[in-house]
Amino acid sequence: MKLKMMAMLALGVAFLSGCAGTPQMPVTPDTVFWQQPSKRIGVVVSDVPSPDVYLPGASCLLCLAAAEIANSSLSKHTESLSVDDAKTLKSDLKQLLESNNVEVIEVAEPLVVNKLPKYKSEVPNTAKRDFTAYKNRYNISHLLVLDIYAVGMHRPYSSYIPTSDPKGYFSALGYLVDLNDNTYKWYKPVSVTKAVTEEWDEAPTFPALTNAYYQAIAEGKEIIISSLDSKTAEN
């Protein structure tokens, strides 16, 4: 098990949004956006990370070690789970954009947001990093970014003591940047935890938690797609 803390995930969100200050509020595209002509949108999607067990709150080294030992069987099982369902998000987003009469350009290069130049503006919903170089580089009007940065199980701790049973877990951040003015046309952080109603501690296969894991991925995908979709975004 990798010993990962929720603070690290929060830092990842800050890097992705390019803002270490006030968190960016969600932004939803309206129908006018989809009706605008001549949109070519670049799409970049991160690699899906390996499934892991996340233990926020086990904050000292001994706490982490104890939590790791206590969850070792679950960790071993979690690492064997498939991420294929999460990997389909890229094709799902491409299909969604094309259904809105958008020409989609796949961006092959890795996107390291915190290495982009900083961008200062008083305009609301402006990205704090400068994405505009992608406009000429790929001949696109917008850049859609989706970073899936956690899949697996989530079990919070208070030092040595778990404060809940494990839950299925999916966490991601998606945003769409208008490369003409570097503003967000869509911004959606997603964090899903799915609890089980039956017994969870059934090693070695953990059937209830396994089902919750796939439910968390499915729900996270649906949140992302419905948030971006012009047919459902304003409902």
Rank of each mutant, 00 (worst) to 15 (best):
202 E>K: 04
36 Q>P: 07
44 V>S: 06
89 L>M: 14
150 A>R: 12
188 K>T: 07
5 M>L: 15
146 L>G: 05
217 I>L: 06
13 V>W: 02
226 S>K: 15
116 L>H: 02
61 L>Y: 07
114 N>S: 09
139 N>D: 11
4 K>N: 05
187 Y>F: 09
149 Y>V: 13
222 E>R: 14
205 T>H: 13
157 Y>I: 05
221 K>I: 05
35 Q>L: 09
96 L>N: 08
115 K>I: 09
65 A>R: 15
123 V>S: 08
173 L>E: 02
154 H>S: 03
85 D>R: 15
32 V>T: 09
54 Y>H: 14
212 A>Q: 08
80 S>Q: 00
232 T>I: 03
74 L>K: 06
35 Q>G: 10
83 V>M: 08
84 D>N: 15
199 E>D: 11
48 V>N: 04
2 K>Y: 02
85 D>S: 15
148 I>Q: 04
90 K>M: 05
63 C>H: 12
20 A>S: 12
210 T>V: 09
170 F>R: 13
148 I>S: 01
172 A>V: 11
93 L>E: 02
90 K>F: 05
14 A>F: 01
137 R>D: 07
231 K>C: 12
127 A>F: 00
29 P>D: 05
194 K>F: 02
62 L>G: 02
216 A>S: 14
217 I>G: 06
75 S>Y: 02
99 S>F: 03
109 E>P: 10
129 R>E: 00
23 P>H: 04
87 K>D: 04
132 T>C: 06
29 P>Q: 00
108 A>S: 11
226 S>C: 08
149 Y>T: 14
205 T>R: 12
4 K>T: 15
183 T>C: 05
127 A>I: 08
135 K>N: 06
129 R>N: 08
156 P>Q: 06
52 D>V: 14
71 N>K: 04
30 D>V: 11
69 I>H: 15
193 T>V: 14
138 Y>L: 10
83 V>E: 00
102 V>T: 15
212 A>N: 10
232 T>Y: 03
150 A>V: 09
212 A>F: 02
38 S>R: 10
27 V>N: 02
69 I>M: 15
153 M>R: 09
222 E>N: 12
192 V>D: 01
132 T>P: 02
14 A>Y: 04
139 N>S: 08
79 E>Q: 06
167 K>E: 03
207 P>L: 03
127 A>P: 01
120 K>G: 12
24 Q>T: 12
167 K>N: 15
44 V>Y: 07
148 I>F: 01
46 S>G: 02
158 S>N: 13
58 A>Q: 04
220 G>T: 10
124 P>K: 03
228 L>H: 01
74 L>M: 04
125 N>E: 00
35 Q>V: 07
214 Y>C: 12
85 D>K: 13
106 E>I: 14
93 L>V: 11
132 T>L: 03
169 Y>K: 15
113 V>Q: 06
219 E>W: 04
51 P>Q: 00
1 M>W: 05
57 G>K: 02
188 K>F: 01
28 T>P: 10
154 H>F: 08
212 A>G: 10
